[in-house]
Write a protein that binds this DNA or RNA. Structure first.
Length: 405
RNA sequence: GGGCAGGUGGCAGAGCGGUCAAUUGCAUCAGACUGUAAAUCUGACGCCCAAGCGGCUACGGGGGUUCGAAUCCCUCCCUGCCCA
C-alpha cells in the first residue's frame, strides 16, 4: 500500500515535469492534466516533416517529450509527413518553401527511423505515413476542409502576417498545410498533439478540424524552441546545428561552442539532468562559483552520452581537452595520399581540400593559420616535399591532416 | 489586361557613368586573448599568376550607347504592390 502511494506520487511528479519542463503552451491544460492523472492510455501524435534527413537537438526536444509520454504508458503515434513534406511547412520560414519530389522525400526518410530509435522506443510506437490518407482526399473534401478557416484566421498566424505585411509572397498552397496536418489528427484519432512552439498554429488547426469531423478536440502541448550554438534559430542553413548523429568528438566540440547564456536552456531541454541540479548550476553560474566552461563540459558529456554512451562521452572530453586546452594533436588524424612528390604549399592546401582556392590558401598562410609539422608557415610558395612517413598539416585550430606519398 | 516599384557577392542592404572586386551589417575564415570551437578585440573575405599601383570574370539574361556601365537605352525573364 505504501509503495503504491509512493509510486503514484512519482507518477504525479513525472506528470508535473512533463507538463512544465521546456513547455510553452498547453491547451487544454486542466483537461490534459486530468486525463493524464486518470492514467488511461492516450494517443500522442507527433508529426515530423521529413524535409531533412537529420534530427538535431532542437527536433529532439519534442521527440523527448514524446518519449516522456511513452514512459507514462501512452501511445506514441508518429506521423511521418511524407505527403505534407511535398507541400512544405510554412511554419519556420519567412520564404516560400520549394516543393519536394516524392523521390527526395523517400531519400530523406531513409535514415529517419534509426535516428528516432535513439530517442524513443519504436517497438511501442505507431508509425504512420500521412500520404496513406492525404493522397486520397478529393478536391471536394479539400474544399470542405478549407471551409473551416477564413483567410483572416490564416493571416493571423504570425509568419503569414509578417510576410503579408512585408509584401513577400504567400502561396495558397501554404494555407493548405495546417489543414492537412489537422486532418492527420482526425485519421489517427489523436488525444494529444505535441510539437515545437512554431507548430502552434498547425496543432491548433487539428482541434478545429477534429471537431469539424465530430471528434473531441485533441489537447495540445508545444515545446520551447532551442536556439543553435550561436544563439540564433537552429537551422541547417545557419550551420549552428548539433545533429544527434554527429560524431562524439564533433558533438562535444559543438556543445562547447554553445553561447554561455544558453547553458541552462540546453540542460533543461536536451538532457535528463534533474531540474533541482539544473537550478543549482544556474545559481552557481550566476555567483561565479561555477565556471561556464565547466558547466558546458558537463553539458557536452550529458548530451554525448545520451546519443553515444558514457564511454564515448568521456573519450570525447579527453580528446577535446587534449586538442584545445593543451593544444596537443588529436589522437586520430586523417591521412591522405598524394602521388606528386613536391608541392608548393598553397597548391598542397588546395589538393588536400584544406583550402578552396589558391587565393584562400595564400590568405590562410599570410594570417599565420597554417602549420607544417608544427611549424608556422609564412610563404605560400614554399616547396613541400612529401615522403612515405608524410607531413602533418594543420589549418586553423581544428583541421589536421597527414599527407603522404 | 493596365499602372508602379524592384532584381547587386552565402544573406540583408548601399551604390545610380570613371577613383567599384563593389560602403555597411550578419554569417564565414584566420590571429590574439582566455574559460572552449564561448565572449571580446584585430585582420581577411571572387578567381588566376611571374604577387604587381598585375590579369581575368562578376551587380537577373541578351543586345546597345560611351574612350569607359552595377550605374544610361532597348528587349526578354522573374518578384512585389495597386487597379481591373
Amino acid at each position: 500500500m505504501a509503495s503504491l502511494m509512493k509510486s503514484s506520487k512519482r507518477v504525479s511528479e513525472a506528470i508535473d515535469e512533463l507538463l512544465s519542463r521546456g513547455v510553452t503552451e498547453i491547451i487544454d491544460r486542466t483537461h490534459l492534466r486530468k486525463v493524464l492523472l486518470a492514467g488511461k492510455p492516450l494517443r500522442i501524435k507527433l508529426g515530423i516533416d521529413p524535409t531533412g534527413p537529420r534530427i538535431h537537438l532542437g527536433n529532439a526536444v519534442i521527440i523527448r517529450k514524446l518519449r516522456d509520454f511513452q514512459r507514462l504508458g501512452h501511445k506514441a503515434v508518429f506521423i511521418v509527413g511524407d505527403f505534407t513534406a511535398q507541400i512544405g511547412d510554412p511554419s519556420d520560414k519567412l520564404a516560400k518553401r520549394p516543393m519536394l519530389t516524392a523521390l527526395e522525400v523517400k531519400a530523406n526518410l531513409k535514415s529517419y527511423r534509426d535516428q528516432l530509435s535513439k530517442i524513443i522506443d519504436l517497438s511501442r510506437a505507431e508509425f504512420v505515413f500521412n500520404s496513406r490518407w492525404l493522397s486520397k482526399l478529393t478536391f471536394k473534401e479539400v474544399a470542405l476542409l478549407a471551409e473551416t478557416f477564413t483567410v483572416q484566421q490564416m493571416l493571423a498566424r504570425r509568419n503569414f502576417k509578417e510576410r503579408y505585411e512585408k509584401g513577400t509572397e504567400i502561396s495558397i498552397r501554404e494555407f493548405l498545410y495546417p489543414l492537412m496536418q489537422g486532418y492527420d489528427s482526425v485519421e489517427v484519432k489523436a488525444d494529444v498533439e505535441i510539437g515545437g512552439f512554431d507548430q502552434l498554429f498547425n496543432v491548433m488547426a487539428g482541434r478545429t478540424i477534429q471537431q469539424f469531423y465530430g471528434q473531441k478536440p485533441q489537447d495540445i502541448l508545444t515545446g520551447e524552441m532551442l536556439e543553435g550554438t550561436d544563439g540564433r534559430k537552429m537551422s541547417k542553413s545557419w550551420g549552428n546545428v548539433i545533429n544527434i548523429t554527429d560524431e562524439p568528438n564533433d558533438m562535444f566540440g559543438k556543445v562547447m561552442s554553445v553561447r554561455d547564456d544558453l547553458i541552462i536552456k540546453y540542460f533543461t531541454l536536451t538532457t535528463d539532468v534533474s531540474l533541482e541540479e539544473i537550478k543549482i548550476f544556474e545559481k552557481d553560474l550566476k555567483s561565479g562559483k561555477l565556471n561556464p566552461r565547466d558547466a558546458k563540459a558537463r553539458l557536452a558529456r550529458e548530451i554525448v552520452s545520451l546519443y553515444h554512451g558514457d564511454a564515448a562521452a568521456k573519450k570525447a572530453e579527453a580528446e577535446f581537452d587534449k586538442v584545445f586546452r593543451t593544444k596537443g594533436l588529436p589522437s586520430e588524424i586523417k591521412t591522405k595520399k598524394l602521388t606528386k612528390p613536391v608541392f608548393e604549399l598553397a597548391e598542397l592546401l588546395v589538393a588536400t581540400r584544406l583550402a578552396k582556392s589558391k587565393s584562400e590558401a595564400a590568405r590562410l598562410i599570410g594570417q599565420g593559420g597554417v602549420k607544417i609539422d608544427g611549424i608556422e608557415q609564412s610563404d605560400f610558395r614554399e616547396k613541400i616535399s612529401l615522403s612515405k612517413e608524410g607531413v602533418l598539416i594543420q589549418v586553423g585550430k581544428r583541421n589536421f591532416l597527414r599527407v603522404s606519398l
